[in-house]
Design a protein around this nucleic acid. Sequence first.
DNA 1: TTTATTAGGTTAACACTGTTCATTACTTTT
DNA 2: AAAAGTAATGAACAGTGTTAACCTAATAAA
Lengths: 212, 212
Amino acid sequence: MGITERKQRHKEDLRNRILEAAKKLFVQQGYEATSIRKIAKEIEFSPTTIYIYYKDKNDIIYALHQEGFNMLREKFSTLMLVENPFERLKAIGKTYIEFGRTNPEFYEVMFMMKEPMDFIGNSCMDDKWEDGEKVFGILEQTITECQTKGYFTNLPVKLVALQAWTAVHGIVSLYISQHLFKLNETLGLNYDMQVVTDQAFQLFSTYLERTK
Amino acid sequence: MGITERKQRHKEDLRNRILEAAKKLFVQQGYEATSIRKIAKEIEFSPTTIYIYYKDKNDIIYALHQEGFNMLREKFSTLMLVENPFERLKAIGKTYIEFGRTNPEFYEVMFMMKEPMDFIGNSCMDDKWEDGEKVFGILEQTITECQTKGYFTNLPVKLVALQAWTAVHGIVSLYISQHLFKLNETLGLNYDMQVVTDQAFQLFSTYLERTK
DNA sequence: TTTATTAGGTTAACACTGTTCATTACTTTT
DNA sequence: AAAAGTAATGAACAGTGTTAACCTAATAAA
């Protein structure tokens, strides 16, 4: 069955080529500007072909959502080498913010857009947000370890993790949506945006430090 | 000049009717689903008429952005009656979250979408985000007063205010984008979303309290 | 071997979208 | 009465996601 195998490979290859083309346009021009027809033109197939390999546009952006989570999880897993759990927690936060700043389109699809979340609900697969769960697990574990070092005593781990996530997300999302920049500009203190986000995170870190 | 005056009123009236129609559709169906043609049908005018009163769709959503800020500012200004600055700070946070939860479409246009921010930049008016500035001012003042009570000592007011804003925004935006809900569902602890957001905010409040 | 089936891909079309241009209908000014 | 200005419009442009119908080439069944 070498032929059917080759065909199967070819099919998977095309599915991947679609995703690569989508990613390229997506990173360059953002979600709204990435149309099915543009993706089709990029891979030199007709627009309808894409619907053979992906259910709809949300299916494609969900695939990019997953790819983004793979990127982020990889970054996080290397941080597990950091022994001190609180230092690791801070490193996770810094990495999270850095990821959002350097991959704004991916961040948007992962944490800001409703569409991928809707896709999880509508898709026939179990409507679990596994990508989110895994990354959140790393955060939970780190916070649990922090508790053994005297941080976050008498606080529910899941709650501490969730709040920490919302806190860094707030920084990143307002950075990406230009609100942080516009506010800074309006206040007349034209700081570098990298400095602003870093300082906000550092302040939050000191808040967490005081739980010890 | 009674006639020209009446005409002028009629013109302003139509501009308002467009905005009211837009708001209605917008609240009911969200931004994406609110098309110029639907607004036109609502007010029983042709789609092109709308372009006489608003530059483009971004102009309309910027008007809604402003309206949202007026709503929020009103809520905040009544909180100025709260004497204790730290209690007021907490009240501001609670009100902010409550506002986002009950007016998700407005919140989106005010703090999550890029379009209104772009409009500020492209518009001929001074590209200041005055709506944001005013609300931020209330936050700043409250934090300044908190400092006289011993909170946030040796910390820059603007930084504390900015970080507080990002923290609550993180809660609200992840609530609106369904990410918080999906994570809770996935973790199998089907809490009420109102409880989750409130608890996250309360935890953040305790962090702030420890700065005293 | 011939026929039937099926999978991959495409063309054409539907029902939309934001936006603009040329044109009409009407009012005001000259 | 003629000219200028203004509000509103119909038609069109260039796009969007998506689907039904169709074609072709390879495979499976007769």
